[in-house]
């Protein structure tokens, strides 16, 4: 079973996950092709975040299959480090390393994990800082940056690993409203460059604009999915309709 770019980059089949007796995912299946931007939306506690955290094995699953470029994630012998080099992740709380400058945050993993040459990694990191429009903030510590700036550093940090797919876990949920736009713009730039993105988000307008495909989850299952044009206009399931009527 060799993977080719024509196959889904990420493929979930009947994924089940529970924390103790609490069932969080109840048979989730979805496919993400290379270059796709998919948005997962749904009410709080519906398992969205858990779903994407399973893709880079931050959470393990009890049943089902998750393939990333043909590699099975639900496998006790999985080489998690190899998987995580391919799958980047950006968190709601940014989780920058507070004792390192913005530039160090971005270049540390390439140097330490990928064993890149330090000078090259630094040049690449500076280019990424420019890309996320944070030129001049290289030597700032995370505590000296605004939420939106920190989140963009986090995106640059993830990009520095040159992942094939990036997971965005409600990355604007903790931000002040005025800084949400700059982060969304950064993600939009990535999407336009063809980066495969899986987003959990509450930003409906943004989802409608950038997503190739929308998935609506509730109580651990995917209730409904489709391209944004049809999804937002012709939602079929009553649960989807109710959710959309609340957030739109």
């Amino acid at each position: 079973m060799s993977w080719t770019p024509a196959d889904p980059m990420v493929s979930l089949r009947d994924v089940h996950k529970s924390f103790g007796t609490l069932k969080v995912l109840n048979g989730v299946s979805l496919d993400v092709m290379k270059g796709d931007v998919i948005c997962i939306i749904g009410p709080s506690g519906s398992g969205k975040s858990t779903l994407i955290r399973c893709i880079n094995a931050l959470n393990d699953i009890q049943k089902g299959s998750i393939l990333v470029e043909g590699q099975e994630v639900n496998d006790p012998n999985l080489n998690k480090l190899e998987l995580r080099k391919k799958v980047g992740m950006v968190f709601q709380q940014y989780n920058l390393f507070p004792h390192k400058t913005a530039l160090q945050n971005v270049m540390m993993a390439p140097v330490r994990v990928l064993k890149h040459d330090k000078a090259k990694a630094e040049a690449a990191a500076r280019a990424l800082m420019k890309k996320v429009r944070l030129e001049g903030k290289e030597d700032a510590y995370p505590g000296e940056l605004s939420g939106g700036q920190q989140q963009r550093v986090a995106i640059a940090r993830s990009l520095a690993m040159q992942p094939d797919v990036i997971l965005f876990d409600e990355v604007t949920a903790a931000l002040d409203p005025e800084t949400v736009g700059e982060v969304l713009q950064t993600i939009k730039d990535l999407a336009e460059e063809g980066m495969t993105c899986i987003l959990v988000t509450h930003e409906m307008a943004f989802a409608r604009e950038v997503a190739d495909h929308i998935y609506f989850t509730d109580r651990g299952v995917i209730v409904e999915h489709g391209p944004p044009a049809t999804f937002f206009k012709n939602a079929q399931d009553p649960r989807t309709k109710e959710f959309l009527s609340q957030v739109l």
Binding site: N56, K80, L81, V87, M89, Q93, N95, A109, R157, S158
Partner: peptide, 15 residues
């Protein structure tokens, strides 16, 4: 330390 520090490091493939 917040668990996010561990998770961020893990997701960047640090051992």
């Amino acid at each position: 330390l917040p668990s996010g520090q561990w998770e961020a490091a893990e997701s960047l493939a640090y051992t």
